[in-house]
């Protein structure tokens, strides 16, 4: 026993503090990395806010009018965000309503009905969906989903550019995140609850819907909200499939430009710097940013509040 201590290069005689250069260096480097991401975020917010300020400083624009008037026609000086906001909410709503039930079923299948070995094969395949560039989804919406909708509902009813097609394809786009989040929350339901249910003579299906799903309701709600927030920010699909030109409509078969769609169209065109059109996209960007930020915070709150204490 006495010999073993002599094998250490430093003797542990002193208890004084030591400076460990490697440790301190790593500490500084990691801190710098953390700062970088914070600065990026702050930078984005500052640019968004300052450019938006220029927009709102314009005599044609009022803050109240921006949020309450029903027309968005920058060329004739009408700046009401409602048509764009409405189109965004419509496509996002279609997306989550389309995707959530499907995601719940897939997640139940993965967490309750498959063996881990099979799940390990299926999950990566689903995650490939998340790797498809969204422009490809956009062409899928225009080239496949819209024609199908037109064939089913008639091409008189369904315009070539429409929010339904964009919404459905956004739904497909957010499926992987929804499935992963819901699957995680189903898996986190303690196993002793499943056993309690099986012990009462419940089948797998009864256990899934009677115990596991209610037990992970918060996780499902959080996934729904996060999916919604992801759908709000989706750009390429709506730019390609939902149509250009703002329209205030609840009809999903009509075209309506969303907030992101407008930003893409304007920033891709030859609008001059510091014109009102140019500044308007920052104001819309700020609204988008605040909306997704708010939704993400709510989603995280829900997850945290109802976590399983096991």
């Amino acid at each position: 026993m006495a010999d073993s201590t002599t094998n250490f290069s430093q003797k542990q005689a002193s208890l004084e503090k030591k400076t460990r250069i490697g440790e301190s260096l790593i500490h500084v480097v990691l801190f710098a990395c953390a700062l970088c991401s914070i600065f990026t975020t702050v930078g984005i917010v500052v640019i968004l806010a300052s450019q938006s300020a220029l927009f709102f400083a314009d005599p044609q624009v009022t803050l109240l009018g921006f949020f309450t008037s029903f027309e968005w026609q920058p060329s004739i000086g009408k700046f009401g965000i409602l048509p764009l906001l409405n189109a965004t909410l419509l496509t996002s709503f279609i997306a989550v309503v389309f995707a959530t039930p499907f995601a719940i079923l897939v997640a139940i299948f993965l967490s309750e009905f498959t063996k881990p070995r099979i799940k390990a094969i299926i999950k990566p395949i689903l995650e490939v969906l998340a790797g498809i560039p969204s422009v490809v989804y956009g062409y899928f919406a225009v080239g496949t989903v819209t024609p199908v909708l037109q064939r089913v509902f008639g091409s008189d009813t369904v315009e070539f550019y429409n929010t339904a097609s964009a919404g459905i394809v956004i739904g497909i786009l957010i499926l992987p995140i929804l499935i992963t989040m819901i699957d995680d929350s189903l898996t986190s339901v303690p196993n002793n609850l499943r056993e309690a249910s099986f012990g009462l003579g419940a089948t797998r299906l009864q256990t899934s819907f009677g115990v596991v799903i209610p037990g992970s309701f918060s996780g499902i709600a959080a996934a729904f909200i996060l999916g919604f927030s992801r759908a709000i920010g989706e750009t390429m699909i709506v730019a390609l499939a939902a149509g250009a030109g703002s329209a205030l409509t609840w009809n999903p078969f009509r075209g309506a430009e969303t907030m992101t769609g407008y930003i893409v169209r304007i920033s891709g065109g030859d609008i001059s710097y510091n014109s009102i059109d140019y500044n308007s996209i920052f104001a819309i960007g700020l609204v988008l940013f605040l909306a997704t930020l708010g939704l993400n915070i709510i989603s995280r709150r829900i997850v945290k509040k109802y976590q399983w204490n096991v």
């Binding site: 002793n192 609850l193 056993e195 309690a196 249910s197 115990v211 037990g215």
Partner: peptide
């Protein structure tokens, strides 16, 4: 069956 750790449904 009754289990080791009380496991009422939530």
């Amino acid at each position: 069956m009754v289990f080791q750790k009380p496991n009422p449904f939530p």
